[in-house]
Design a protein around this nucleic acid. Sequence first.
DNA 1: TCCCTCCGTTTACAGTTGTAACTCTACATG
DNA 2: CATGTAGAGTTACAACTGTAAACGGAGGGA
Lengths: 147, 147
Amino acid sequence: MSEAVQNSIEEITPSEWELMRIVWTKGQLYSRELIDLMQAKRSWSDSTIKTLLRRLVKKGLLQTEKQDRRFLYTATISETEAMNGSAEQLFDHLCAMKKGETLLNLIQHVELTQTDIQKLQAALTEKAKTAPTEVACDCLPNSAKCD
Amino acid sequence: MSEAVQNSIEEITPSEWELMRIVWTKGQLYSRELIDLMQAKRSWSDSTIKTLLRRLVKKGLLQTEKQDRRFLYTATISETEAMNGSAEQLFDHLCAMKKGETLLNLIQHVELTQTDIQKLQAALTEKAKTAPTEVACDCLPNSAKCD
DNA sequence: TCCCTCCGTTTACAGTTGTAACTCTACATG
DNA sequence: CATGTAGAGTTACAACTGTAAACGGAGGGA
């Protein structure tokens, strides 16, 4: 059946990401606050935002708790889980042989702090200890190779 | 600004990625070959694959050239462009402050070759020369901070 | 010449996403 | 008590996705 394990996080659409980020940042809040914060960034109608909230609840990404007569929203998965899950989902689509190239591009274009860089370097050094000299392309059934 | 920028590549759906990867790998091929290769990985009907191909052409990701009486398909964007574009789109949804963390997770989970690692390290070293000590969260309009 | 088969085109249909109006209900207020 | 109102729920609707059957024309073989 459903619930419990989300064996690879529900898809989060772009609009949903925006809402989730607010929830993660604030921890918990009422739809009214959510709507106000959201409208400070996007001119979406109240209705639109409420629809998105309900969909997020249905997907199990948000949960509500009745307070007075309104609902307090909280996230059911952490921002880290969501970020890592989505990033991994994306990388799953890429040719195994070219993931490194894509990471390189990201590293060059994403803003990173000195601390981030240190951690990344440490991880790479660690990874180098067991990394292979090559990774095979997995774009075709098995036959022809990737260049 | 930059140059020749393609204002953010058409969205590529998961099914479409699978087809595109075959096209990128083979360079150019007829729908029949594409269908056969695809069916060796997924049990999609001919029809389904043909529909996807037409949609990819409509989106401008594939282009056709009439040969005899069938079409030869080729990609209009390179695999690298697509990979980088999609990866950047994903990262656009993430909190600026947490992109480093996500990259760290990817680096730890993605299979990388020694060469990939060396390049990544070189890029990081370069980046460290100008990296800031912190990056601000951009999840809320401006107000409240991220944790 | 006739039909079968291959390939491309049309149509289909449910589910998801973006976007939003409308409605219902319980309160607060006059 | 009569209402306006905030917050929740219902309905809507077009575009996009996943998945595929059905249709139509052209070439190859009988």
